[in-house]
Simulated scan of single mutants.
Amino acid sequence: MKRRSFLGAASWAAIAPAWSAPKPGLGPFGPGAPGPLNLITDVAGLKIGLSNDAHARTGVTVIVPDARAAAAVDVRGGGPGTRETDALTAGNLVRSVDAIVLSGGSVYGLASADGVAAWLGARGRGFSMAKQPGVPPSPIVPTAILFDLANGGDKAWGMDPPYRALGVAAIEHAAAGAFPLGTVGAGYGAGAGSLKGGLGSASWRTGDGMTVGAVVGVNSLGSVVVPGTHNFWAGALEHGHEFGGLGPSSAHVDGEDWGLAKINPGARANTTIACIATDVALDADELRRVAIMAQDGLARAIRPIHSPFDGDVIFALSTAQREVPTDAPRPFVVARLGALAADVLSRSVARGVYEATLPPGMQGKTWRDL
């Protein structure tokens, strides 16, 4: 796809009259709504795969575009665990992906990408400068992990951690359409503050047809609920009863009251990892801005966030199923998508915790126990 440059000031002034007269309360493009599934798979050209290991209390989520996709990453946590994020850095050769993996297991979970890459490579998917007989492609599979090693599951795996197999299982079952939330995939063994964490997802379709979705594994140090209440920090962004229907809280909170945040946090023992997807044909630089803006969605849903003890990472990708609208300056479209990504990610965080249940034998409290 040929890259289009941002419009300069003169071009902006020329086009502004065509789009700068919004309807009251609706913005210039009319009302939007969650997609039909209210999941990241509302973004056309995208599949999700999930796998769990109940014995080890861990799991893997894989995001698979139908074709190689432009992508970017933004890292804000103080203790991240990642693979191949450098490939997405500006100035490097390969800034696109064949899949993205979110995994439990801390450093062991990075091996989940081995299984995903092997599965893709065996099917001829991956990066190649030039195809040569007998030379397999190199699948690009950026990965981020969260820490779920201390949740009581059996981690005595010796030299054979389960993550490569979990990666294969996840991508083998990747599909478009609906998928479960809560205690599944990368969120299977997660904890959100003092509550059970989980896998969350949500979507938004704009009045002019653009779609943004998010999927997130919530394993944060911070709490997702307002201290002393059942209300999610993300309550003001809720649509319908997607995470309980309580809406925003009216409580006033002391600056040092972290509520149900984890007590005695450990280094690298937390982390919220996510992927934003859109069907709009953005390039890698534009997607980086979307990922940066999406981090503010975590700040609206989790308190505190981006601490020295968290490894928060957000990926962003484009399935390029639709062109960027031409009725507004391109940077304005990026700003719209970034703002939507932040809201969708906030809702996804709350949905993941709202839907979470305790795996068999696991001790703790879920949101529904409050």
Rank of each mutant, 00 (worst) to 15 (best):
S5R: 15
W12R: 13
A18Y: 15
A18N: 14
P31F: 13
P34I: 06
N38R: 05
L39M: 09
L39Y: 01
A44M: 07
A44S: 12
S51Y: 00
I63V: 13
V64R: 00
R68S: 07
G78P: 02
G81W: 13
A113T: 08
G126M: 05
M129V: 13
I140S: 03
A144H: 10
G153I: 08
R164M: 05
G167Y: 05
I171R: 02
A175H: 10
G177Q: 11
V184C: 00
G193C: 06
G213S: 06
S223G: 11
V225T: 12
V226E: 08
N231V: 06
F232P: 02
E238K: 01
G245Q: 03
A251V: 09
H252M: 04
G255H: 07
N264I: 10
A269P: 03
N270I: 12
T272I: 05
T272F: 01
D283V: 13
D285S: 15
D285F: 10
E286R: 09
A291C: 07
R300A: 11
I302E: 13
I305D: 10
D312I: 04
P325H: 03
A328N: 10
A328P: 07
V334I: 14
G338Y: 14
A339E: 12
R347T: 06
R351C: 11
G352W: 01
W367A: 01
